[in-house]
Design a protein around this nucleic acid. Sequence first.
DNA 1: TAGATTGTTAATCGATTAACAATC
DNA 2: TAGATTGTTAATCGATTAACAATC
Lengths: 211, 211
Amino acid sequence: MMETETKRLGKTPSIRRMSLYLSTLKSYQAKKIEIVTSADIAADMDILPIVVKKDLQLVHPPTKKRAGYLVNGTIKAITTFLGWNKPKSAILIGVGHLGSALLGYRGFSGLTFVAAFDTDVKKIGTTIHHIPVLNISNLSHFLKKRKIEIAVLTMPSEQAQSIVDILSQENILAIWNFTQTKIHVPSHIALQREDLSAGLAELSAKIKNNQ
Amino acid sequence: MMETETKRLGKTPSIRRMSLYLSTLKSYQAKKIEIVTSADIAADMDILPIVVKKDLQLVHPPTKKRAGYLVNGTIKAITTFLGWNKPKSAILIGVGHLGSALLGYRGFSGLTFVAAFDTDVKKIGTTIHHIPVLNISNLSHFLKKRKIEIAVLTMPSEQAQSIVDILSQENILAIWNFTQTKIHVPSHIALQREDLSAGLAELSAKIKNNQ
DNA sequence: TAGATTGTTAATCGATTAACAATC
DNA sequence: TAGATTGTTAATCGATTAACAATC
């Protein structure tokens, strides 16, 4: 029997919901609410309370013994579970509109952009959202000096694999691929591919269903 | 028993894969390959052949009687299944970096941006990727004149609900929400929320698993 | 004590994978 | 005919939901 390459992590849907739990809980924090029930959270997220209970059990949140979840402690538990308590150092490659949007995105917890790279001499030497844009030809050299954990790819698809080959030789942990192309990485590097059209496909199916 | 509001569509994972089938098939088209097997497609997408067969059965692709799928016809079948044969007219609200990136994104099939809206007088009157940027105060008026099917939200979260309230009064089919806030829409409007941090959460879990 | 809520086990549902029949 | 491949049914696996025990 063929061995599946991508071993299942299990709980992927739960993990994808974690960031929404975080922002929901932070909104309670802003309102100085210290304890919330699974029903409260569920109502705010349009899901069922049992989903909240099951999901949160993954992160071992502190509870006020059968009276609700402690807001601050649950935020900490989720943050730790995702490894976001120690922000991961990241670089971004390709400072177009999407790249710039990600560099300035306020919503990422646990990710800190250290530098961006581009080929365009007009961009090199500038900063975007306070992050310096460096010459792509210095990529290797930079990675040997600085410990970088995540590389975010927002350059044109055609250049993706050649950059990935450079990244693969350095000591990074993960690649987050926003390009429209499949890339090949060594198995020790974690890979996440974002496909914006997948969301559009889902929306299109919903439209069809509404009619 | 409480009624679940978001009725299950079923097959959501399959639907989210459709756009990848499309781009994979288009790469065969570019190479003038006319017939491919589920094994070919599976190899190129890093999934199992049975997944390809099951997914494609949803769209009723033309097959060369047990010898493979006809590339052109299968592209057409998927496109039709998603309703992408008649491109949907769309507007985008909030021409920041993310908005600009989406306006210029080459990867969307079946979506045509007709106009963008912003509050910034420096942007109003210009075009981005050939799409005119209009004054947000003309939104209602514009929607009464032009048949728009999808509204894409890329403005700051704080403004989201007030814009949604305007949109809800007009005759649109769907809202694609890229903001970080939950919005309330009437049930006849399809809603898709994109959460960029969900992908980061997934990637973080993969990193943890690799260690 | 009564009510409320988590924690946990069991049931259901849906998606993935396997097996194989049909047939080119 | 033999080999290959889709189409389809069955089995497995995982995620969601229900039910309820524990206990504050």
